[in-house]
Simulated scan of single mutants.
Amino acid sequence: MLLQIKELYKDQCVIDEMPDYPNDYYWFKDEGNHLVGIKKNISTSEKKLLALIFNEIISIDFDQQTRLFWLELLLYGKTKLLDRMKASDKHLRFIFFHHNFDSELKIQFEQLIKSFNETFIVLFIDREYGVILDFTKRGEYDIQEFEEIAKAINEDFYYNTNLYKTIEYQINETISSSFLKEFDLYKTYRNRHKLIMEQQELLLQYMILTVDDYDGFTEVSQKIEGLAYDLIEVVKCYLENNFNLSVGAKCLYMHRNTFMNKLEKFIQVTGLNVKEFKDAIVAYLIIKNIELRRNV
């Protein structure tokens, strides 16, 4: 009987397989406990006839089952579940987020995320953190879509969250360790004031937060902290605008010569020549670390 059904419906029928979109199918079981899925574009009379031949399954929540599989795989390394995942998905990107949602808001949140991309899978890891699984093969310039998602979350839920999107990982036996590593980095070093974080931003945040661990920066850090606010802002604006004096001055509504004089004064007082790449890195990390401590 199964062979005849498969021959009749061909690609519209799956037997003991999990298709990409299982909710697009009617599901049945035969006497041998084989799972039969038929695409929902059949007529009502056909569906009634199939229900007479097989036992119809109505109450399977495939989305929930898929989410549980992924949580078991990613959190607990149950690699035997890899066989249950979609064979066509070879790569995966994690998009981490912070939340304070109750059960009802979680449903609304998932609906919002699915409205951007139906293939996204939303997992709530615990009461504070979640992750979106992104299987889409992407190019370099996909930051705009993630900014739209983050803005929609903030506007629809009145909640300031930020997204950290990782690089793509191969879906294999190491996917759990990659996930746990990225999750730990996000929890520890996420920048709450940045809408979208990529790997380089997370690395920068790590360096900013740990610069205090090196005692050699203590003296110069104290010098910078004792400077007038406008001197620090000039240097920060200069560095964040790629060492461009004109753009930096315009950013602060300052005359270019005034801007340059303040820059020179910073160099003189701190001993850090921020026109040179290595000194610029040190100055920027210390300035951002001071800002972070002041905000806290």
Rank of each mutant, 00 (worst) to 15 (best):
I57R: 02
L92N: 06
D30I: 05
Q170F: 05
R127K: 11
T136Q: 09
L50N: 09
S115E: 12
K86H: 12
L92S: 02
Q4E: 15
F62P: 05
G32L: 14
T210V: 10
L272E: 01
M1P: 03
D63I: 11
G32P: 03
L263I: 07
L285D: 03
T119S: 13
S177I: 11
G77F: 01
R256V: 14
L203M: 12
I143T: 13
A152P: 00
H255I: 06
Y158G: 13
H99M: 05
L2F: 01
Q199N: 11
N295T: 15
H99T: 00
F217K: 02
F28H: 04
I267E: 07
L204T: 03
D184Q: 12
L239H: 00
I267Y: 00
E148N: 12
E17V: 04
G216W: 11
K250S: 11
W27P: 00
Y158T: 09
K187D: 05
I38E: 00
E17P: 06
I290F: 04
M260L: 13
R138C: 07
L185W: 05
F157D: 02
Q222A: 05
I167P: 08
R293N: 08
L52E: 15
K39V: 05
D63V: 14
L180V: 10
N160L: 13
K223G: 04
Y129N: 09
N242E: 14
P22M: 09
T258Y: 06
K137F: 12
S176G: 04
K106V: 06
V234F: 02
L185K: 08
Q108I: 14
